[in-house]
């Protein structure tokens, strides 16, 4: 007898339940082990190749040394308000302070540096982020944090940290959402005008 419906009940249940009402009887066997625990097989054939998205093509003022070169622009390590250049930059990165040269390099302005002084270029900026944010860096390297596109078992492109987070103000910027779902076709017309705030005050913005 072909039992197609056993295929999507787990093999364990399929083997133990032979009654036609397998799906009904299955409920009795569930105490053996939690059903949400899957048998995760060992081995596998991973052939993922990750490319980190470059940073420098997205920088409008790179290389920095076009402007920042001695003696024209002596590095000024003082914390101050920018009035001439970089005026749109807001530094809102943690409470520990630090100014430009915490990450940028005074003596080699086209490079960043890790906390131990190792120089890295802008395309490897994630190393700089990772030197403080170790847990996120670990997740990012493992593919658990950040946007990765491409092939799930092949060539992947991963966004570098500063391509999503402004390094000077790294909180992910709020954005305008896409349009909200259509109200159910049969909802009375007047409810269509209900804004979210009104909705929250009465009935949590339920659809009609």
């Amino acid at each position: 007898m072909r039992l197609p419906w056993l295929a999507y009940i787990s093999p364990r249940l399929g083997a133990t339940v032979l009654l036609p009402f397998a799906s009904l009887a299955a409920g009795c066997n569930q105490s053996e082990e939690p059903l949400h625990h899957r048998q995760l097989p060992k081995g596998g054939t991973s052939s993922v190749v990750v490319t980190v998205e470059a940073r420098t093509p997205l920088l409008s003022t790179y290389p920095c040394s076009r402007c920042h070169f001695s003696p024209n622009r002596e590095p000024d390590p003082r914390e101050r308000k920018f009035t001439e250049f970089h005026t749109h930059k807001v530094l809102n990165h943690g409470t520990q302070g630090g100014w430009c040269y915490r990450c940028h390099t005074k003596d080699d302005i086209d490079k960043l540096h890790l906390q131990d002084g190792t120089l890295v270029d802008f395309d490897h900026a994630y190393e700089v982020c990772g030197s403080c944010h170790g847990d996120k860096f670990r997740d990012w390297k493992a593919g658990l944090h950040g946007l990765t596109t491409g092939f799930w078992n092949g060539a992947q492109v991963r966004r570098s940290c500063p391509n999503c987070h402004d390094p000077h103000s790294p909180a992910f910027a709020p954005m305008k959402p896409e349009r909200m779902p259509e109200w159910p076709r049969t909802a009375p017309a007047e409810t269509h005008a209900m804004g979210p705030e009104e909705g929250e005050s009465e009935g949590h913005g339920k659809g009609h």
């Binding site: 159910p184 049969t186 909802a187 009935g203 339920k206 659809g207 009609h208």
Partner: peptide, 12 residues
């Protein structure tokens, strides 16, 4: 009602 995701939609 409510729907599996908690929406209340009337039907006549």
């Amino acid at each position: 009602v409510p729907s599996p995701l908690g929406e209340v939609v009337d039907y006549i």
